[in-house]
C-alpha cells in the first residue's frame, strides 16, 4: 500500500488507575496522519491531547496505561510493542517536541552531549560525523554560529532558542513522524511565527508527518491540513481543517471557534463556553458535553458515536449543527 498513512490511531484508550478511581484520559480516539501532512489536535487543557501524544511514543507514566485500541505506525501496532522496540522507534522514527522549552533540556549537560547522544542511540557513527549532523540540524532551525552554540549549556540560551534546539534534536534522525506538544505556547508570537513557518517548510520538504497538539485554533488554521477536536478524552469532530473551522458541526467546536477573540468584535463581550470541563473521574453519562451544551436534549443521555457526515468529516453528536455555516 503506497498511500498507507504514516500513523493511524484506532480507538485508542489510555486510562490512569488512581486511588480515586479510573481516569479515562483518552477514551476512544481515532485519527490518521499521512506523509508530509500536519494534523492539528485541538482541545482545552485536560482534554487528553498530551496523553494521546505520549501514548504514541509509549511514554505514558504510571499509573497510566494504554488499555485499548491500536496505534499503527506504518502498519505496525505499537500498542503492546516491546520496550526495546519502542526505544528504537523513539527519536529515530517518531520524535517528540515538548511544551516547555525551559524544561526539556538537561541543565547540566552541554548541547553537543545532548544532541550527539540522540544520534548515537540509534546509529553507529563517528564523533565527527555526529557533530557535523548536529551543526547542520542547528543551522536548519536557524541558530546562528552553531559550532560555538554546541559547546553551550542550556541556560545560555533564550526560551525560543532552546525550543529551536529541541526541534533540531527532534529532526536529527530525520523521523517520519513528529509529535509536537504545544511547542510554541511558551514562546512569544514573533518566535512562534518563525517556528511555524520553518516546521511547515520542513514537513513539505522532507515528507515528515506531524501531529501538532495545541489549544490555539489560529495556529491550527494556518498550519494544519486536518484537525481533530478533543473533548474529555474523546475526539468530537475531525476533518479537513478549512471545513471544520469554517463550518463546525459539533457544538463544542463551534463554541471554541466562537471564543477566539476577533478584531472585528471590539468592545463586545467575548463569548465563552458556559461551565467547566468535567472531571475525568466523574464524566456525565452519555455525551460528555451535554452539561455545557445549549442543544442538549434527553437523547444526549445516550453516548453519541463518531459518525461520518460527509467526505472525511466525522462528528460525535446527536444534534450536529447545520452544515451551511455559522
Amino acid at each position: 500500500m503506497s498511500d498507507q498513512a504514516t500513523l493511524e490511531v484506532r480507538n485508542l484508550q489510555t486510562h490512569f488507575f488512581t486511588k480515586a478511581g479510573v481516569v479515562k484520559a483518552v477514551d476512544d480516539v481515532s485519527f490518521s496522519v499521512g506523509k508530509g501532512k500536519i494534523l492539528g489536535l485541538v482541545g482545552e487543557s485536560g482534554s487528553g491531547k498530551t496523553v494521546t501524544g505520549f501514548s504514541i511514543l509509549g511514554l505514558v507514566d504510571e499509573p497510566g496505561r494504554v488499555v485499548g485500541g491500536e496505534i499503527l505506525y506504518r502498519g505496525e501496532n505499537l500498542v503492546g510493542a516491546s520496550q526495546e522496540r519502542m526505544r528504537q522507534l523513539r527519536g529515530n522514527n517518531i520524535a517528540m517536541i515538548f511544551q516547555d522549552p525551559m524544561m526539556t533540556l538537561n541543565p547540566v549537560l552541554r548541547i553537543d552531549t545532548q544532541m550527539i547522544e540522540a544520534i548515537k542511540a540509534h546509529q553507529k557513527v563517528s564523533d565527527d560525523e555526529a557533530r557535523q549532523r548536529c551543526r547542520d540540524a542547528l543551522g536548519q532551525v536557524g541558530i546562528p554560529a552553531p559550532e560555538e552554540r554546541l559547546k553551550s549549556y542550556p541556560h545560555q540560551f533564550s526560551g525560543g532558542m532552546r525550543q529551536r534546539v529541541a526541534i533540531a534534536i527532534a529532526l536529527l534522525n530525520k523521523p517520519e513522524l513528529i509529535v509536537a506538544d504545544e511547542p510554541t505556547t511558551a514562546l512569544d508570537v514573533t518566535i512562534q511565527g518563525q517556528i511555524l513557518y520553518e516546521v511547515q517548510k520542513l514537513c513539505a520538504e522532507t515528507g515528515t508527518a506531524m501531529i501538532w497538539i495545541t489549544h490555539d485554533l489560529s495556529v491550527v488554521a494556518g498550519l494544519a491540513d486536518e484537525v481533530a477536536v478533543m473533548y474529555a478524552g474523546r475526539v468530537v469532530e475531525s476533518g479537513e481543517v478549512d471545513g471544520v473551522l469554517d463550518a463546525p458541526q459539533h457544538p463544542y467546536t463551534a463554541g471554541l471557534i466562537g471564543s477566539v477573540p476577533s478584531r472585528n468584535a471590539r468592545g463586545k463581550r467575548l463569548q465563552q463556553i458556559p461551565g467547566m470541563t468535567p472531571s475525568l473521574l466523574n464524566l456525565p453519562v452519555g455525551c460528555a458535553f451535554k452539561t455545557r451544551c445549549s442543544y442538549s436534549t434527553p437523547v444526549c443521555e445516550a453516548a453519541p458515536v463518531l459518525s461520518e457526515v460527509a467526505g472525511g468529516r466525522q462528528v460525535r453528536c446527536h444534534h450536529p449543527l447545520a452544515t451551511e455555516a455559522v
Partner: peptide
Amino acid sequence: HQDYIKFARAKGLSDTRIIGVHLFKN
C-alpha cells in the same frame, strides 16, 4: 519527573544512559 528526563526517553536513549548520565549528574 522532570521534562528533560522524559525528553531523554523521547530521544530513544537507553535506560542505562538516562539513569547513568541524565539523572546521575543532577
